[in-house]
Design a binder for these strands. Structure first.
Lengths: 112, 112
DNA sequence: GCAATATACATAATATACTTAGGTATGTCA
DNA sequence: TGACATACCTAAGTATATTATGTATATTGC
């Protein structure tokens, strides 16, 4: 992705949606999964990912479970009931925005 | 629009595309047009609009023509040759990003 | 006639949400 | 044993908006 600014405002949506679909995941896993799913088009940097996870947890949208696997600490996150409401809202918001953008990018002739 | 951050990175695209489709326009007109076209879903604030116009002009993507109409100064902008290349690039970028987002929001089952 | 609203431009201060860069630590593979 | 992968983290810098404020003229309603 050349212009990386397009991810702005969509990072939390991505994280919440992935957790909703896949049950619990840990941060590193999320970043790899997003890269793979989007053919490396969207790459979440660690400097954005971890603060976002902490923020979502603090807001009550995620629950956390820590575990050590193969000597490495992992923090598994899963979406909370509040988080499910939030992700639905965020996806709707994204779709509305995209729809609005296409009103400008693909203007349709109006009837009188 | 609740989350106004979604416009980030798309403002220049909107301005360039409108000017490409409508010939010359002035700032105030652009902001009103966008509001109308998107049913007020996207509203460009003046604090974002005017600096964006100046930046696009400085980058050679817009040409400017000043005129006074009914005692009020207006600055008409129109897209340059460079601007046309730029808007094509930005629209492609937006579409790629949206497509990538939908790979996450609407994941499709993969064949083995 | 005058106040409120619309038109038309502009900039400064502030906020947000990223990127970049740097750090710690363990495991794996050539 | 040195590079790369895994797994977490934070601080500083940057980009791009919002909010607030300013100037000035025209129009509209009471």
């Amino acid at each position: 992705m050349q212009n990386k600014t397009l991810i702005k405002g969509n990072l939390e949506t991505i994280i919440l949606k992935l957790l909703q679909d896949n049950g619990e995941m840990y941060g590193y896993q999320i970043s790899k999964r997003v890269k793979k799913m989007t053919d490396a088009e969207i790459q979440i940097t660690e400097g954005a990912l971890y603060p976002a996870l902490h923020k979502l947890e603090a807001a009550g949208n995620l629950d956390i479970r820590q575990q050590t696997i193969d000597g490495r600490a992992r923090k598994y996150y899963c979406i909370s009931k509040e988080g499910k409401k939030e992700v639905a809202r965020k996806i709707a918001e994204f779709e509305t925005f995209v729809s609005s953008m296409y009103m400008i990018l693909n203007p349709v002739a109006k009837c009188k």
